[in-house]
Amino acid sequence: EVHFESHGEEQAMRVVKMLKKRNLTVEVKVENNKWIITAK
């Protein structure tokens, strides 16, 4: 499981795309203006 924190939507979306290319399940949450990305 991979956790990634991002402060910007643009950066977060880039990471999500990259993770999805690896056929991982990606969950995105926004907490306290931080984008929290979890990949399994």
Rank of each mutant, 00 (worst) to 15 (best):
E1W: 14
E1I: 13
E1R: 10
E1H: 12
E1M: 13
E1Q: 11
V2H: 13
V2N: 04
V2C: 15
V2P: 03
H3R: 14
H3E: 06
F4N: 04
F4V: 06
E5I: 15
E5K: 06
E5V: 14
E5S: 07
E5G: 05
E5A: 05
S6N: 03
S6T: 14
H7Q: 10
H7P: 09
H7G: 06
H7A: 12
H7N: 11
H7M: 12
G8S: 15
G8K: 12
G8I: 15
E9T: 05
E9V: 09
E9N: 04
E10M: 08
E10V: 10
E10K: 12
Q11G: 05
Q11P: 06
A12I: 08
A12R: 02
A12L: 10
A12Y: 04
M13T: 04
M13D: 04
M13Y: 06
M13L: 09
M13K: 07
R14E: 12
R14H: 09
V15Y: 08
V15E: 02
V15R: 02
V16Q: 02
V16I: 14
V16P: 01
V16S: 03
V16F: 04
K17C: 14
K17M: 13
M18P: 02
M18F: 11
M18Q: 07
M18I: 10
M18K: 07
L19D: 01
L19H: 02
L19E: 01
L19K: 02
L19S: 02
K20T: 10
K20D: 03
K20M: 11
K21N: 09
K21E: 13
K21C: 13
R22A: 12
R22S: 10
R22W: 15
N23A: 06
N23D: 05
N23Y: 15
N23L: 09
N23R: 09
L24A: 03
L24Y: 15
L24S: 02
L24D: 02
T25I: 14
T25L: 12
T25Q: 12
V26R: 00
V26N: 00
V26Y: 06
E27D: 07
E27W: 11
E27M: 11
E27N: 09
E27A: 07
V28C: 05
V28A: 01
V28D: 00
V28G: 00
V28P: 00
K29I: 09
K29M: 07
V30G: 01
V30R: 11
V30D: 01
V30S: 04
E31P: 00
E31T: 05
E31R: 05
E31N: 05
E31M: 10
N32Q: 08
N32F: 06
N33T: 04
N33R: 03
N33M: 06
K34M: 11
K34C: 09
K34I: 14
K34V: 14
W35V: 05
W35M: 02
W35P: 00
W35L: 04
I36M: 05
I36E: 02
I36L: 06
I37Y: 00
I37S: 00
T38C: 09
T38R: 05
T38F: 06
T38A: 02
T38W: 05
T38P: 00
A39W: 14
A39R: 01
A39P: 02
K40H: 12
K40T: 12
K40Q: 10
K40F: 13
K40R: 12
K40V: 10
K40E: 05
